[in-house]
């Protein structure tokens, strides 16, 4: 049981459109990979296939570590369950409540254990979703634009939080983002999905803490933007 991800020849079609075209992907154990690509490129489709929500085509080779956890673009909390019950959903093993509460403390929500999801702010709800993903001690963490709906300040706090959680748990991670800065800030590698394949694969070798103003940061950012087809001068 390593944390290794290996995908070979993954093809997904919707009607005539070939969204994933014999895609290959490797992620080393514990590595954080940011997945970028224009809207409609197939990022969500890739994550859904890896998460087992869409059927994997039989001709593709897919090796994944388990358990897998996912954070969707929206929190997707069950409105009829209190916060800690949402986190404990489907949790097996001893003391699900204790583990759920510990995970909620980790994301800074120890005081909202019994709250209803509808009473949470957007950022709080997304942190609950993160706690729900982490409480299972996933070997593979799939994040689909997890911070896209948050304001800039909350997003910065979430980045710091996620950085801490990664250092503590070190799950192999594939994170979809539209935010190039976020990708360079958090990821070990940035890949760009285009035309159904990963066209760009950049290693982010920056010392932490990473700073936006650092020349290498700026250079990486420009590379990625160019790969995404954005003209930067």
């Amino acid at each position: 049981m390593t944390g290794l991800v290996r995908v070979r020849g993954l093809t997904r079609r919707f009607g005539a459109a070939c969204v994933l075209d014999s895609l290959d992907l490797d992620i080393a154990p514990g590595e954080i990979v940011a997945l970028l690509g224009r809207s409609g490129a197939g990022k969500t489709t890739l994550l859904r296939t890896l998460a087992g929500l869409d059927p994997a085509p039989p001709d593709a080779e897919i090796v994944l570590p388990h358990p897998i956890s996912m954070v969707f673009q929206e929190p997707r909390l069950l409105p009829w369950k209190s916060v800690w019950r949402n986190v404990a959903l489907g949790l097996s093993g001893p003391d699900p409540r204790g583990r759920a509460e510990a995970a909620l403390h980790e994301v800074g929500l120890g005081q909202r254990l019994d709250a209803w999801p509808a009473t949470l702010s957007g950022g709080e709800a997304q942190r609950v979703a993160l706690a729900r993903a982490l409480v299972r001690a996933p070997r593979l963490l799939l994040l689909d634009e997890p911070f896209a709906a948050l304001d800039a300040l909350t997003r910065m706090r979430m980045h710091a939080l996620v950085g801490d959680l990664w250092r503590a748990h070190a799950p192999t991670t594939l994170m979809v983002t539209h935010d190039v800065d976020e990708a360079v800030l958090l990821a070990d590698r940035c890949v760009v999905l285009e035309g159904g394949r990963l066209t760009t694969d950049l290693r982010v070798e920056l010392a932490s803490p990473r700073r936006h103003g650092h020349p290498r940061f700026v250079a990486l950012r420009q590379n990625l933007l160019a790969a995404l087809g954005v003209d930067v001068h």
Binding site: A51, G52, L53, P67, I68, S69, M70, F72, E74, R76, L78, L89, G90, L91, S92, R132, R136
Partner: peptide, 12 residues
């Protein structure tokens, strides 16, 4: 459906 999917991902 999205809630059902969340349940599936979390092993229900």
């Amino acid at each position: 459906r999205r809630l059902v999917e969340a349940g599936q991902v979390f092993g229900l």
